[in-house]
Computed example of a mutant assay.
Amino acid sequence: MRNLFIATGLILAVAITRFLPHPPNFSPVMAVALFGSAVFANRYIGFTVALLAMVVSDFFLGMHSTLPFVYASMLLAAFLGNLLRENRSVLRIVAITMAGSVLFFVVTNLGVFIMQDLYAKNLQGLGECFAMALPFFQNSLAGDMVFTAVLFSMHHIFVTAPERRLSAPAV
């Protein structure tokens, strides 16, 4: 139960950062999806908490035509987060976070191409869409890395480390 409250609190705290001034695309969206599915005993509850935090913040920040693609990216990231359920080494977290960032970039920019009339609806337009989005990818990747590091580090400090101390054999 303690893990549930701490993990939920961490997700909500990070989601609130969306209301603070930040560089474009520097957000916790991908991090909460990875984290929620990795640390909650029930991965579906973890993803649901993460998704609800984003939906509520999007309600206040404003809805847009590509939100279904953002939420689909979160769902796909939750599958990646499942890969962290048993092994949360730093290298593994970094690799899966990078994979999630690339996944988010591809899916959401495909959403921009499909839902908005910014680019010609042909292969060249698709290429232009992805090329124009590249400058935003660095902020997205940086945000994913920072927020993922914060979530998993804080979870380790407040949940994993104390549990290990309690279960360690007395000497």
Rank of each mutant, 00 (worst) to 15 (best):
139 N>L: 08
106 V>E: 00
98 M>D: 02
110 L>T: 10
60 F>Y: 15
52 L>M: 07
25 N>W: 09
108 T>E: 11
29 V>H: 07
79 F>D: 02
124 Q>F: 12
84 L>P: 01
54 M>T: 10
89 S>I: 00
19 F>G: 03
105 F>A: 06
39 V>K: 03
91 L>G: 14
64 H>D: 14
53 A>M: 00
142 A>S: 13
137 F>A: 00
90 V>S: 13
28 P>V: 03
56 V>G: 14
108 T>H: 03
17 T>D: 10
70 V>D: 14
88 R>Q: 14
50 A>W: 07
85 R>Q: 06
52 L>H: 01
53 A>W: 01
67 L>N: 08
53 A>E: 00
86 E>D: 15
30 M>Q: 06
64 H>Q: 14
101 S>W: 04
79 F>H: 10
49 V>L: 09
32 V>D: 08
101 S>K: 01
139 N>K: 06
80 L>G: 05
24 P>S: 08
26 F>Q: 01
55 V>F: 07
135 P>W: 06
58 D>N: 12
146 V>T: 07
106 V>H: 01
138 Q>K: 13
139 N>S: 09
48 T>Q: 11
46 G>H: 03
73 S>M: 07
85 R>M: 01
24 P>W: 11
43 R>V: 11
40 F>P: 05
59 F>M: 13
107 V>E: 07
133 A>W: 04
118 L>P: 02
62 G>W: 09
74 M>N: 07
109 N>T: 01
33 A>Y: 01
129 C>Y: 13
126 L>S: 10
32 V>R: 05
93 I>N: 11
74 M>G: 15
40 F>A: 03
107 V>F: 04
130 F>W: 12
67 L>C: 02
91 L>E: 12
33 A>K: 01
18 R>I: 04
86 E>Y: 12
41 A>T: 08
78 A>D: 02
75 L>A: 12
132 M>F: 14
64 H>T: 13
64 H>C: 14
108 T>D: 10
45 I>E: 15
53 A>F: 00
136 F>V: 07
105 F>P: 01
37 S>P: 05
54 M>G: 11
139 N>M: 09
78 A>C: 03
40 F>C: 00
104 F>I: 01
127 G>C: 12
76 L>Q: 07
43 R>C: 09
92 R>M: 02
101 S>Y: 03
50 A>Q: 07
133 A>T: 07
140 S>E: 11
70 V>I: 13
64 H>I: 13
122 N>M: 09
70 V>F: 09
54 M>W: 11
62 G>E: 05
44 Y>A: 10
118 L>D: 04
79 F>V: 11
54 M>D: 11
139 N>Q: 12
73 S>W: 06
137 F>T: 00
84 L>K: 02
66 T>F: 10
106 V>G: 00
90 V>P: 08
32 V>W: 04
78 A>Q: 04
105 F>M: 05
118 L>V: 02
76 L>W: 08
23 P>N: 06
60 F>W: 15
44 Y>R: 13
36 G>L: 03
67 L>I: 08
58 D>S: 12
66 T>G: 15
